[in-house]
């Protein structure tokens, strides 16, 4: 058998069609036959591994969201007209800035993340005092989210999570039996202080004067959520 034959057998794991010379060699070679049997057994074991797992609730919820957007072409037209009207109104009345609190996709992602982990303290990567939670994020994300004491709230724990592809510190609070998710994002993602509703959850955001953005998700009334965000930034 040539070196090329040997390489072929190794690379293809004996599963590819063999040439006449290769077949003849394997028929005479006990160790080749054993290696072929080993690779066959390995292949069977690998192919018997489960190929599926229960998808995360958040991903399923994203797919089950009703398609609210009009067709893309129509949406572009509607947005174009809306933008023109907004520009006219802004020019006329001297308004500054947009009206959106944050990107709709971001609000949806935050809301779904909140719903996915709501009451699931077992998903916490860190449980402990405010200082321990902040220390954990400093060690693992190299960011130290400002986390002051907030009256009538209790820090439950936290975890790192990816929001819009960026690693973010997520801290869970409890207030009056409500579960709240506070996201400290390292980049400015909030357009202005305010709240939106997404997937039945109030999502409130504000700029963090120390840098980045802060977004709180939960089912408390929006004015209360905004007050909590402000207190979390003091």
């Amino acid at each position: 058998m040539t070196a090329a034959d040997d390489r072929h057998l190794t690379d293809e794991g004996f599963s590819a069609p063999l040439s006449g010379a290769q077949r003849a060699h394997v028929a005479r070679c006990t160790s080749c036959q054993q290696r072929r049997d080993n690779l066959d057994a390995l292949q069977r074991a690998l192919r018997a591994l489960p190929r599926i797992a229960e998808p995360p609730d958040g991903a399923l919820a994203l797919l089950e969201m009703p398609a609210r957007s009009p067709p893309r072409r129509r949406l572009r037209g509607v947005l174009g007209v809306a933008a023109m009207l907004a520009a006219l109104v802004a020019t006329h009345y001297g308004f500054r800035g947009g009206t959106e609190v944050m990107d709709t996709a971001l609000a949806q992602e935050i809301a779904l993340d909140h719903l996915h982990y709501e009451r699931r303290i077992d998903a916490a990567e860190i449980r402990g005092t405010r200082e321990e939670v902040v220390d954990y994020f400093e060690q693992t994300l190299s960011m130290r989210p400002h986390l002051p004491e907030i009256e009538a709230t209790r820090v439950l724990g936290g975890k790192r999570c990816r929001i819009g592809g960026t690693w973010t510190a997520l801290v869970w609070f409890e207030r009056a039996d409500a579960w709240l998710s506070l996201f400290a994002l390292p980049s400015p993602k909030v357009v202005r202080r305010g709240c939106v509703e997404a997937a039945g959850v109030n999502v409130c955001g504000a700029h963090d004067p120390r840098g980045g953005s802060r977004i709180l998700a939960g089912k408390l009334p929006q004015p209360e959520m905004l007050r909590l965000i402000d207190e979390s930034l003091e």
Binding site: P50, R51, I52, A53, E54, P55, P56, G58, A59, L60, L62, L63, A105, E109, L112, D113, H116, A123, E125, K159, C161, R162, G165
Partner: peptide, 28 residues
């Protein structure tokens, strides 16, 4: 395709929590 994608992510990443976050991001 989601169940297969979830299994693949869990095997490649090793941590189920991180894999679930990743699957959610990929769906988005």
């Amino acid at each position: 395709l989601l169940p297969e994608l979830t299994r693949f992510a869990r095997w490649v990443i090793g941590s189920p929590g991180e894999a679930d976050d990743l699957v959610q991001e990929v769906v988005l």
